[in-house]
Design a protein around this nucleic acid. Sequence first.
RNA 1: GGCCCCUUCGUCUAGCGGUUAGGAUCCAUGGUUUUCAUCCAUGUUACAGGAGUUCGAGUCUCCUAGGGGUCACCA
Length: 462
Amino acid sequence: MTVTRFAPSPTGYLHIGGLRTALFSWLTAKHNNGKFLLRIEDTDMARNSEEAKDAILKAFEWVGMSYDGEVVYQSKRFDLYKKYIDQLLEEGKAYKCYMSKEELDALREEQMAKKERTRYDGRYRDFAGIPPEDVEPVVRIKAPQEGTISFVDGVKGEMNISASEVDDFVIARADGAPTYNFVVAIDDALMGLTDVIRGDDHLYNTPKQIVVYNALGFKIPKFYHVAMINNEQGKKLSKRDGATDVMEYKELGYLPEALLNFLVRLGWSYGDQEIFSIEEMIALFDPENINKSSSNYNLDKLLWLNAHYIKNKSNTELTELLKPFDVDIAKHDKMEMLLDATKERGKTLVELADQIKLILAAPVEYDEKAVKKAFKGEAKEILTDFIALLQTWEKPLHLPTDYHEVMEKIVADKEIGFGKIGMPLRVSLLGSMTGAGMDEVMAILGVDETIERIERAVATIA
RNA sequence: GGCCCCUUCGUCUAGCGGUUAGGAUCCAUGGUUUUCAUCCAUGUUACAGGAGUUCGAGUCUCCUAGGGGUCACCA
């Protein structure tokens, strides 16, 4: 059975790039009817935070990616790691290193001066003498001293790393706490991982982890190293480039399905297809098709996808989604009409909410440019006549088409173009030059409110 | 600096030895619309550079350039 995982360290919010690797892992598991596990990498007590962990879990909840079983916390598994450290020590596959920090620093400086790669020189690997008393030892694992460590990466292809690139790295700190590369290998093995999909930045951890797998006799999973997401300029994504925290997207009015659709197409594709429902992603995703090269974040595409998903949401769903954006129209008797008139005009829920607010609340001020363009010439006269026409209209005024008839009448009577009445009317009702169709707006407002708004506008025209 | 990875329209990408190098987004233009948006149509724009292999190279090899990753008792 396919088992994948996402293993964040709780040092901050869930990053957009992290969400993509999580998505790839999740899709791989779902596609194969396997399991997707979540593990919190909190071995570094000094840098962890409970809030960060909660924030990550919350982000997962928002996008709807569910994990199987219980969340695994590495901080609760120290006894287990200790057992393996002792085992390796006993088997002679690991050893205590009494090198002090000062000595290590000196070694590094020397290597850097000689422009060599900085690496531990293995001085305690076969140490049999009397250890210095004032140094708490770390435990180092014996890495192969010659040859190459090879593995097939599902994204990068065949990888061959020279043994000289991997030194006898620390698996237990002086205080006994295990280190990252050690516990990752153990947990991935014990949790039954078959496929490890993670960021490109872990590529060089892989040979180290393979050393651990081999020392402990664990089965090595398949690795996939996914390239980074850069900003539009191809540089590392930073907060200056817009939202990097997944939850910010929620606040900015993005739909999780749009964000996921956007992310899945960064580094992966299925022919020419752009729109993927969650079900389609699951059905079609294959990590073997992940691109080798890094991709750039592109807001235009996200916006386009978001608009697409908003347009295709039902009005009922939309009323719920709009609530956090100060628009509660669940009980509005013209709810359907309101959304039909606006849902194609907002690329985000924020924009959609703004459109609706424009209709719900009478304008307190009129857009300056709009006034200049619309409230001029015979506008005042036309609007006044329009009010009169509405007041004396004998047919029912309920539907947009009803109001359209009134518009047609005034256009015919006064022999003017639609624009002559449309523009001043729009500014009168919404205070702006753009927005929903007039017929719809009037039908939503009703005759009384419509007339009131026009009267108020007329009063401002000199 | 050592080691490793990457490079097709501005951006996301298709392509897997023979294509007028395709799609999407963006932008522009036109149509629809009382405005805006939607929608539809049309258009501009790409194989980083250089050698080779081959009858033929975006696709294979090498070199150069550019970009990125990594070298912790951090994850």
